[in-house]
Simulated scan of single mutants.
Amino acid sequence: MSKSKTHEFRPDDFVVYPAHGVGKIVSIEEQEVAGMSLELFVISFEKDKMTLRVPTNKAEDVGMRSLSSPDVVDQAMKTLKGKARVKRAMWSRRAQEYEQKINSGDLIAIAEVVRDLHRNDDQREQSYSERQLYEAALERLTREVSAVSGGDEGAAAKKVDEVLLSRAA
């Protein structure tokens, strides 16, 4: 797959926008801004009922990318199976790192957050902020796994869940 810099994204493509996760390009439109013509990707995030307009020439700078390949999804699943690596740093610092990983748009980094914050039922309670970060990471991971495998979010959630549960065994 060669990635030419001129428009690798087309309408109906699923893309990953780092700060928001998986969205779908609805159209490419021209808008006049300050007397200059600007070409924009119009990206819909259906689940969040949000539409984002990203200048086509800035898409790369903001880290917008195509969906991960099935290989990367497999790597993310392997990452989930790994042992949680929780640093001894203060929670505020760890939370910041987790947040950065989630918003990096990097599926493997997101899988690391899910792995590190996952709790089995018999483990200690999670704080509210831990739970928020865990759910945000889990949702990003699940949506991308779902989009890569053809769009069944329920099946993707089940797959991720099975991997996390198999880890506990």
Rank of each mutant, 00 (worst) to 15 (best):
K87I: 07
R85H: 06
D106N: 09
K5V: 11
R167I: 03
I43N: 03
A155G: 12
R140S: 06
F9E: 00
S68D: 11
K101H: 05
G150F: 13
L165W: 14
I43C: 12
E60M: 07
V148L: 14
V62S: 06
V113R: 00
D122C: 08
D106V: 04
R10C: 05
V62P: 01
A89E: 15
S4T: 10
Y128M: 09
Y134Q: 09
S69T: 13
K5H: 12
V33G: 09
L38S: 13
K158G: 02
H7N: 12
V16W: 02
S4R: 14
R94A: 10
K5D: 13
P55D: 13
K87N: 10
Y134A: 03
V26Q: 15
S44I: 00
V22L: 06
L141S: 01
S44V: 06
N120G: 03
K159Q: 10
I110L: 05
G21S: 09
Q75C: 00
I25Y: 01
N120T: 14
L117K: 02
E46N: 11
D122R: 08
R124L: 09
Q132P: 01
V22A: 03
A109L: 14
K24D: 06
E153L: 10
S166N: 10
A157I: 09
D106M: 03
A168M: 08
Y98L: 12
A168L: 13
L117C: 02
I25G: 00
S104Q: 06
M90I: 14
Y134P: 01
E139D: 13
Q126V: 13
S127R: 11
R94Y: 04
A169N: 12
M1Y: 01
D48E: 10
A137H: 05
E153N: 12
V148N: 05
V54L: 10
E112I: 00
